[in-house]
Design a protein around this nucleic acid. Sequence first.
DNA 1: TTGATTGCAAAGACTTTGCAACCGT
DNA 2: ACGGTTGCAAAGTCTTTGCAATCAA
Lengths: 129, 129
Amino acid sequence: MNKDYRLTPARKNILELFSYSCKPMTAQQILSYLAKNKIFVNKTTIYRELDFLLKKDFIKELHISSGRRYYERTEQKHHHHLICKKCGTIEDVTLIQNLAKEEKRLELEKDFKITDHSLEFFGLCVNCQ
Amino acid sequence: MNKDYRLTPARKNILELFSYSCKPMTAQQILSYLAKNKIFVNKTTIYRELDFLLKKDFIKELHISSGRRYYERTEQKHHHHLICKKCGTIEDVTLIQNLAKEEKRLELEKDFKITDHSLEFFGLCVNCQ
DNA sequence: TTGATTGCAAAGACTTTGCAACCGT
DNA sequence: ACGGTTGCAAAGTCTTTGCAATCAA
C-alpha cells in the first residue's frame, strides 16, 4: 500500500511556484524562474511535472497561444485574461456578466455537453500602446 | 508598377477552400483536403500562404489549441466555437449577450486597448457523450 | 523581364519518449 | 526494497528559413 506520488524537491518547488505565482507560465518560464533561484530542474522533468499536475487538477492549460502551452493554478474564482499582443504580459480579469446562461442555452440548442470555456481578451497594454 | 501579389494555382485553391469551408483548418488539413482533390501543394507553400492570407486579413488565427494553429476566414458576423474535446469537431455558435460593454469597462479600468477577444466552449459533442 | 512564388532540404522551437540511475517513503 | 522520479539523449511534431528554379503579369 503506497502513495501514488512523492514529494520530491522538483515537485515541491514547482508546486510552490504555482502557488505563489498568479501568472500563467510556460515550461520554459518555470525552468527560468527556478534557475534564478538556483534550482536546476531538467526540462523533461518540468514537462512531466506539468502532466502530473494537470492530471491532479492542480493546474490547467490555457488557450492563449498556438506556439507554446501556458498553465495556471486551478483556482476557485473563475476569471479571464487580458493579453498584450506586443509584450506578452497577461493580466487576470473578471466578467460582470455571466456566461452560464449562454452555456445552458447552447447545450440545449446544440446537444453539446459543455465542460468549460475560454475567454481571453487581446490588445495592447498601457506600456505598449 | 507591379501588383504585390499573383494569383497562382496554389493560392487560388487555398482561397477557394477557405471560401467554401466554414470550418477552421490547420495547415495539415488544408494539405489533405487539397490532396484529395488531386492538388498537390508543398507544406512550406501552405504555411507561406497562411502567412500571406493572415497579412491580407483574409483569414485569422484561432486560440483553441496549443499544439497546432487553426485558421478560419475573416467574416463579417462575429461568432465563437463549440469544440469537442474527444473528436475535435468544431461548430460555430453565436452569443445572445454582447461582450462589447465588458470590453469597454475593462479598457477603462485596466488602461488596456482591447483589439479582439476569443471565446471558445469546450466539451463533448452529441456523438462523443 | 522581373519580382513574387514554389519545392526541397535543413534548421528551429517546443514537446514527448526510452532507459538506466536515483531516491522518497 | 519498491516503485515513483530524474536526467540525458534521441525522436517526434509543427513551423520557419535559405536558396535556386519557376512562373504570373
